[in-house]
Design a protein around this nucleic acid. Structure first.
Lengths: 206, 206
DNA sequence: GTACAAAGTCATCAACTGATGACTTTTGGG
DNA sequence: CCCAAAAGTCATCAGTTGATGACTTTGTAC
């Protein structure tokens, strides 16, 4: 094999990116120092500048969000529930336990972070939710629902409000259905569709 | 008079507090430096430590929020509209243009800020909104509505989402009424009550 | 007018920040 | 085995940070 075994450029990059995601999410851009990130990754801080040019470069690359594929597909009336479920109950431990968009609020003094936030939110979430309404202000409705999800995420993982923090999917489902139905003026499901059930699915293959 | 005229301890304190509110709101706790704050206030940075002991002390005192008196009074069905109106359309220029609770999210890596946020949100807003519902999960409903308001504030002033940023009170009123009514399962007004009309109010004095 | 205390300023410290370049270790081909 | 390039480390720089204590200015009471 032509590649070295111990010293591995791309693996080190990935370790730095993972550590950066953690630190930036938990402490915000300013408070997270390059030295701390490098220490978490187990490498020297100088490698950050070797591989990413600057702290800002590291942040930009670390903040490049991966919207889970398939999240926006499926029946429109299930979309709100699927989005909220992903936001709240997916495993975001790679981002210090919070959804990347929620964690990025800590760095929102930086234009980079704000732009990224807006693009991700508008370009992905709002655009998908817009299809739920035919009203002339469908975009506003979609943003208002996005605001609700983001707010719930903030209350849950940042502020730590008691009721929302302790809420389980069944607790939230009726309210989700009620609010989304009222906002989009059409029936909206309160629970996400069941998972693909990889173990036993005799019905609909292919 | 026994107090000096030019050199005024309390006036200088107030100037420092005002500058601190601005900087902390706009840049977050870490990025806002004591020197910058003091420069904004037009005094020497050493006075910060003279008057507040430390940067943290300054932050705590600057973050002591003043919930507008009377905001929580009045008919319950008008409360949501009044709260949202205060959050979005009141003059928060003292806090760099954002509601203090929204601005404090930038400093949410600090436990101080998080605790303050939770106390203010739960102790004031959620508690007032709880009265809107008799359901066993009234607290959850109140938090969910608070989450919505906070999210709208974030989208409007932090993320800068187009539709919510451009929305006027009449644009929001119907959606506010629909969402709040659905969440609290009772009729809720979409617009705040008209202002006291100090110019011409022959009806109900005293 | 002088003395005293309050109010404000200045110089400075140690720690930390992002960043740079020279250095050392490892790796794999010849 | 040897070497060149890649990968990683080290020492260090200049600037900033929070913080401290000595100093100067101001205002007033006597």
């Amino acid at each position: 094999m032509t590649e070295p075994r111990r010293r591995n450029r791309s693996a080190t990059r990935q370790r730095l990116l993972a550590a950066a995601r953690h630190r930036f999410a938990k402490e915000g851009y300013e408070a997270a120092s390059v030295r701390d990130i490098a220490a978490d990754a187990g490498v020297d801080a100088a490698l950050v500048f070797r591989y990413f040019g600057s702290k800002k470069g590291l942040f930009e690359e670390a903040a490049a969000t991966t919207t889970p594929t398939g999240l926006l597909d499926g029946p429109p009336e299930e979309l709100p529930a699927r989005l909220l479920h992903s936001l709240l109950f997916e495993d975001w431990s790679a981002y210090a336990g919070e959804h990347p968009l929620v964690a990025m609020l800590r760095s929102s003094a930086h234009d980079e972070a704000r732009d990224h936030l807006r693009e991700e939110l508008c370009g992905t979430y709002v655009r998908a939710l817009e299809r739920l309404s035919d009203a002339p202000d469908a975009a506003l409705r979609a943003e208002l629902f996005s605001a609700w999800m983001l707010g719930i995420g903030v209350l849950r993982s940042v502020v730590g409000t008691p009721a929302v923090s302790a809420a389980t999917p069944p607790d939230l489902a009726p309210h989700l259905a009620a609010v989304a139905s009222a906002l989009f003026e059409r029936p909206v499901a309160g629970s996400p569709p069941p998972p693909p059930a990889a173990t036993d699915d005799p019905g609909a293959p292919d």
